[in-house]
Amino acid sequence: MSRPNKKVPEKTINIYCKKCKALLYKYHKGGKGALIKCFIERIAVDYTQQPCTCPNCQQVFARETLIRGIPAYKMISGKVQFK
């Protein structure tokens, strides 16, 4: 399995909690597909106090995991949205 690109995309997206619409992350996302995982090294700004937990409604929106040997958050389907 290959590792993610070393060159981080310049464009960032905002990731929001779907339940309370709180801003969770600004993230450097590559491609235009669905948001399935967030590599921790690509998070530009983190607005959460606890990892994978919404600061407003305390909903767990992701799980910490290793993907291709790199720490990442695997998003739970239907818990987040991005623009």
Rank of each mutant, 00 (worst) to 15 (best):
G78L: 06
K6T: 11
K37N: 10
L35S: 05
Q81I: 12
P55F: 02
G31F: 05
P9L: 12
I40N: 04
N5D: 13
G30R: 14
M75H: 03
L66P: 00
Q49A: 09
I13C: 12
H28M: 10
K19D: 12
Y47I: 07
Y16R: 15
G31S: 12
K7G: 03
R63G: 01
N14C: 10
T12G: 04
Q49I: 08
M75E: 01
K83G: 10
D46P: 01
V8S: 10
I13N: 05
Q50N: 06
I36T: 12
I13P: 06
E64S: 11
A62C: 02
I43A: 02
Q50H: 07
G78V: 07
N14I: 06
V45T: 07
Y25D: 02
V60E: 06
K7M: 09
I40H: 01
G31T: 10
P55W: 03
C38E: 07
V45I: 15
L66I: 02
V80L: 11
I76P: 02
C57G: 03
I13V: 15
C54S: 03
G30Y: 04
G31P: 11
R63H: 05
R63M: 08
Y47K: 14
T12F: 14
Q50C: 01
C20H: 12
R3P: 00
N5V: 08
P55E: 04
A72D: 03
C54E: 02
Q81M: 11
S77V: 04
K79N: 06
V60G: 03
K83P: 00
P71Q: 11
V60L: 11
P55I: 04
A22E: 15
I40Q: 06
T48Y: 00
C54P: 00
R68V: 10
A34Q: 11
C17K: 09
K19N: 15
I15Q: 05
E10W: 05
I70T: 10
G33I: 12
V45Q: 13
A62F: 01
Q49Y: 03
C38T: 07
Q58V: 00
I76V: 14
P71F: 00
L24D: 08
Y47H: 14
E64Q: 10
K29D: 08
G31A: 14
K18F: 11
G69H: 01
T12R: 09
P4W: 04
G78T: 04
Y47C: 13
K18V: 12
A22P: 00
V8I: 15
K19P: 03
D46K: 14
C20F: 13
N56I: 09
N5T: 13
F39T: 07
G31N: 09
N14Y: 06
E41P: 00
K11P: 02
P9F: 02
R3H: 11
A34D: 14
F82D: 02
P71M: 08
A34K: 15
I70R: 08
S2A: 10
H28F: 07
Y16C: 10
R63Y: 00
G30I: 07
C57S: 06
A62D: 02
E64Y: 01
